[in-house]
């Protein structure tokens, strides 16, 4: 019996030799328990050592292997070949980001935005170790827990049409993480994060398309986080209007 095979079409770009990115097609063995990342690893190990792509855990935890697979943002370790077979699979680097090399996207823009929203607990007062742990009730944990599942894989940025149109937009993952810390009872940093989140480039550039929440492989709902931030920011705005002498 002849071995079943599958064609994988990969967008290649080697900046030192290529003028423009171009597709290159590889034929790989087909196994029904293989994911696209297995096919890429097969190509790298056996066919073409020059292929570049990011990956690490192979189990949808690290967030490194996000790619456009048949035009949809997916983790390549989470996209089974059996869902595409016998058709060709087209693999491209994440949309809305510049290409560093082959399937590797330049993600510096996101890293800067992520840092700008201060995605860490900013306590009201520093707590000494001998004061013991900061306790939270299950309900307090539940309020933000889903947002902690974000693995910064950037599928939501590749899915977001607004980020594509307005590169200054802070974007889904960073705004969802800002919301995550705002909702945390241990945190008092909301006012600092609002400087970014409540700006035009923050939540207000979002038009609630909702593709970010569809694309998320960890079932985070960034679209909901952004709409909740819009409501809270609107309440802030009217409060400041009604009480111009109050705390801004």
């Amino acid at each position: 019996m002849t071995e079943q095979t599958l064609q994988v079409e990969i967008l290649r770009y080697r900046p030192e030799t290529d003028q423009d990115p171009a597709f290159q097609t590889y034929t790989v063995p087909y196994r029904d328990d293989w994911v696209v990342l297995d096919a890429l690893n097969h190509i790298k190990d056996n066919i073409d050592r020059t292929l570049s792509y990011r990956w690490s855990c192979h189990m949808a935890v690290c967030g490194s292997c996000g790619m456009m697979i048949n035009g949809e943002p997916k983790l390549s370790c989470h996209a089974f070949l059996r869902d595409y077979y016998p058709n060709k699979v087209r693999v491209e680097p994440l949309a809305n980001f510049p290409i560093e090399r082959d399937l590797v996207a330049v993600t510096d823009d996101f890293m800067e935005k992520l840092e700008s929203v201060k995605p860490y607990v900013i306590p009201q007062q520093e707590r000494a170790v001998d004061e013991g742990p900061h306790l939270q009730t299950p309900a307090q944990l539940n309020a933000f827990k889903q947002y902690t599942m974000c693995i910064n894989c950037l599928l939501c940025y590749a899915a977001c049409p607004q980020y594509g149109l307005t590169p200054d937009f802070v974007g889904p993952a960073a705004l969802a993480l800002a919301h995550r810390y705002n909702l945390d009872t241990r945190d008092a940093g909301r006012e600092q994060r609002q400087e970014i989140a409540a700006s035009n480039e923050g939540v207000w550039d979002c038009t609630f398309v909702g593709e970010c929440s569809q694309a998320c492989p960890k079932s985070v709902d960034p679209a909901a986080a952004i709409q909740q931030t819009k409501i809270a920011s609107t309440i802030d705005w009217y409060k400041a209007l009604l009480n111009p002498w109050g705390k801004r």
Binding site: E195, I196, A198, S199, N200, E201, G202, W204, K230, S233, T234, D236, W237, Y238
Partner: peptide
Amino acid sequence: MAKSNKPIVW
């Protein structure tokens, strides 16, 4: 970044 006035229309 400037605080947005979008809350009016939003």
